[in-house]
Nucleic acid binder design. Structure first.
Lengths: 157, 157
DNA sequence: CATGCTTGTAAAGCTCCTTTACTCGAATGG
DNA sequence: CCATTCGAGTAAAGGAGCTTTACAAGCATG
């Protein structure tokens, strides 16, 4: 496994992955902001997706986001103040509270989803990248490294 | 540009990019830590690469890292205390100081570089991903979005 | 019914960054 | 020759977003 001394001057795979992720995420985020959500970060959209149609408790949310339940609680506090989620009585009782989305959050989910699809189509056109192929290879990589359920997506730096 | 209602249940490209980046970076980071650098984060390796053979001023480093010069200065302080860099007199004079790597940092660069190459080779074997193809597609994407010199790689969340 | 488990919350602290504000050294221009 | 200006570096405070520590509330289980 010696190192190839005259390999092409392509940047490292890791670097390319990071740049691609950052560039696409930034573009996505800007579009969502321009669509009327300048103060929602990716983690908020992620939260909306996790809560989805059925809602979840703060602790479940914490586990899915990969943060402490306190951090999730603070996130829910913030989103509740801004009218994106509600804490309702949990059917299973106990101290549990079911955090559910408001219509405002559902609208955001729709808009963000559309933006994501539009963006991916545009990327293929603008850059000439074969996005289905890219997806397939990335899926292989992710699946091979993390199995069927990947860990929470966290800021990595 | 209507949305495909029965598209395959593949995760979004953006999500796949994020997961792939996180998984590979985490694995890389763990290997570097295991090789004797448990307290060097990716940003430190990035700094070493930027300083490279010729060094740079804190302000240049700040620009390359995409942070304020104060943040870069704090980073240099830390690395200096730990023996990875030195502030030397700058040939151009002025208040400038040239930040240069010590041998310890150069050793780290070598080891991290080897780890990165080994990791990429292993990824291809373990996951069956076509890494050259992946590189090529990612390069297209990145180049198409950011041109010849991509912006600094920052934590994105 | 005491114990323990899980959820939720409160408060403090930590890390890494920015903002604000300043100093130092050199170049520029009258 | 000196005043101005300009860029590099630094110092201090503050903030965003998390964790750690600690505790209270509700339920299950022996």
């Amino acid at each position: 496994m010696t190192r190839d001394r005259d390999s092409p001057p392509t940047p490292e795979l890791l670097f390319l992955l990071g740049m691609a992720f950052q560039l696409v995420l930034t573009e996505f985020n800007e579009r969502v902001a321009a669509a009327g959500y300048p103060d929602l970060r990716p983690v908020h959209g992620m939260t909306f997706q996790i809560l989805g149609a059925e809602g979840a408790t703060s602790s479940e949310l914490a586990a899915r986001l990969g943060v402490t339940k306190q951090a999730a609680g603070q996130l829910v506090d913030d989103l509740e103040h801004r009218g994106y989620v509600l804490r309702t009585a949990h059917p299973a009782g106990g101290r549990r509270k079911l955090v559910v989305l408001t219509d405002a959050a559902r609208r955001h989910l729709d808009i963000a989803g559309d933006a994501l699809h539009d963006l991916e189509a545009e990327l293929a056109r603008r850059t000439g990248a074969d996005t289905p192929l890219l997806r397939a290879e990335l899926l292989r990589l992710v699946h091979g490294l993390a199995g069927d359920d990947p860990p929470p997506l966290r800021p990595v730096w």
